[in-house]
Design a protein around this nucleic acid. Structure first.
Length: 486
RNA sequence: GCCGCCUUAGCUCAGUUGGUUAGAGCGCUAGAUUGUGGAUCUAGAGGUCCUCCGUUCGAUCCGGAGAGGCGGUACCA
């Protein structure tokens, strides 16, 4: 007690970090369990790696003096090496696979889930910490490996509670667009990158916006100007024709793409890959609307080398696009080679668990808060040992129970039980002890009955939803109320 | 990073043409009600009016800078 006016810290979570309570946690756990079961059914084994990796293991990015935390949360270890919180689960897998390659079964198939961190500006649906759930196959370049990953994603969304048809997996091959640009004489890496980024915005900006971004540039509604890829008109037309090839069934889309791809080696290779993935999807029983070929899918992560996948919520009126991707993945054949020098083909998919939870809410699958424990009110401090004995009895009978440990009066204790969503309160004071009975209040029933009473005296005298039973029947009576409440 | 809007109680917001003790609703704590959640009434707690600098006798209010929030855009290895 110095009496000094010490500045008080502001009680607030850092931006981009959210606190999640039981209702949300429950939904997320259910998703993780459902998706994990699907992965395990396909033969993938669980793997957990630490939250930190050495920064150079995460990617080509390295913290530098000017912007030591650009994109990742990084810190310097006491041996001067840079550590960084993982920004996804794929880079740690590549590190793990490279580190243990000689002893692993090959191909190596694992799934993993946990939080990842990105040091970026948060936005609607974008956080700086969020949960991913990944499955990857390392060491197979078969298109069937990609198809299987896609099939699992489709099954995973269904298992998580989204109706079939509520999610579409969009599939593309980066070689298609690269080949198309090459065939049109666009070789400059900067122009190619800008073109990829422009194409990625098709669902948000439409063909007109993409066209502007491929050409001179685009002025957005906030007044900011984005410089375009400066492609010649002929190339822009070719890209737009390519984008227009999307839609409809997989076989039809492939035929339209083949007609506009323009005959480069890279484009043909991409077409071949998609064709074989399509064949495998057919034999895996993945429906034509559950997984489609979509020329505008790009994916941001630079390590993808072949096929890329993106999961989108298909809500009425195209609201799914505004929601953002709820999962994504693709083939990354060079990621393990960064460590070993040997090309090691790999493919995988990542569920955005937090976004998926939000998607479920948007799709009308409401999250419900779990019921609280039976609350034993403490009416008389002299009876504390009786209260704890009752709590132990209820727990032994398989019911969640707690003794109220605050200092407030009965009214506040009832409010507490209410706020905890307790199914029942145990009310025992001197009267009950003297008569060898316990009083239980069914809080759901009491709430319903109370809604019909307007007069305060009647409300107090009726004590709606209460029963009194012999002390020995406490657990049985409580169980009846709890079971009726769930 | 760039553009726009915003910042007064836990929340949603009034208000002060620059002047003594800054308000409401909701929420919270408690009382009316021997031992009962709701309703009603009453009382109470809770504020660096985002921060700093400037102008002024005096700034929550005016000017400047900064921070934070929201949205758009860019980036997302």
């Amino acid at each position: 007690m110095t009496g000094e006016a010490t500045p008080r810290p502001e009680a607030r979570a850092p931006r981009g970090f959210v606190d999640r309570r039981s209702a949300t946690l429950r939904t997320e756990r259910r998703i993780l369990e459902a998706v994990s079961r699907v992965y395990e059914a396909y033969g993938f084994e669980a793997l957990e790696t630490g939250a930190f990796e050495y920064a150079d293991a995460l990617g080509k990015f390295l913290p530098d003096a000017d912007r030591p935390n650009e994109g990742v949360f990084a810190l310097r270890d006491d041996d001067e090496q840079w550590l960084a919180l993982r920004y996804d689960l794929t880079a740690p897998l590549a590190r793990y696979a490279a580190q243990n390659w000689t002893s692993l079964p090959k191909p190596f198939r694992r799934y993993a889930f946990g939080p990842v961190w990105r040091n970026e500006k948060p936005g609607p649906g974008r956080f700086r910490q969020f949960i991913q759930c990944d499955a990857d196959t390392v060491g197979s370049d078969r298109p069937e490996a990609d198809a299987e990953i896609i099939a699992m994603a489709v099954e995973g969304y269904a298992a998580a509670g989204l109706a079939r048809g509520a999610v579409t997996i969009k599939i593309n091959a980066r070689g298609l667009l690269n080949g198309l640009l090459a065939a049109n004489g666009v070789d400059d890496p900067g122009q190619r990158l800008a073109s990829l980024r422009a194409v990625d915005k098709l669902d948000r900006l439409g063909a007109r916006g993409v066209s502007d971004l491929l050409g001179a540039g685009r002025l957005d509604e906030s007044g900011a100007y984005t410089k375009g890829a400066q492609l010649p008109a002929r190339a822009i037309d070719a890209v737009l024709a390519f984008l227009a090839a999307g839609g409809g069934g997989r076989r039809d889309t492939l035929q339209r793409i083949a007609g506009v791809i323009g005959g480069s080696d890279e484009g043909e290779a991409g077409l071949e890959a998609l064709s074989r993935i399509g064949g495998a999807l057919d034999s895996l029983g993945v429906g034509e609307t559950e997984a489609v070929f979509e020329p505008s899918v790009v994916r941001g992560l630079e390590y993808y080398t072949g096929a890329v996948f993106e999961a989108e919520l298909t809500l009425e009126g195209g609201a799914g696009a505004a929601f953002g991707a709820i999962g994504g993945g693709g083939r990354y054949d060079d990621l393990v080679a960064r460590f070993t020098g040997e090309r090691t083909p790999a493919t995988g998919f990542s569920f955005g668990v937090s976004r998926l939870a939000a998607a479920l809410a948007a799709a009308g699958v409401a999250e419900t808060a779990p019921r609280g424990p039976v609350v034993i009110l403490t009416l008389d401090p002299a009876l504390m040992s009786d209260y704890f004995a009752m709590a132990a009895e209820l727990r032994a009978a398989g019911l969640a129970a707690e003794v109220y440990l605050g200092a407030s009066g009965m009214r506040a204790q009832m409010k507490y039980a209410d706020k905890r969503l307790s199914p029942a309160a145990v009310i025992v004071g001197g009267d009950e002890i003297a008569q060898g009975v316990v009083t239980l209040k069914d809080l759901d029933l009491g709430r319903d009955l109370a809604a019909q009473v307007s007069d305060n005296r009647a409300w107090r005298e009726e004590r709606p939803g209460q029963i009194t039973v012999p002390r020995a029947e406490l657990a049985a009576a409580a169980r009846r109320i709890v079971e009726a409440a769930s």
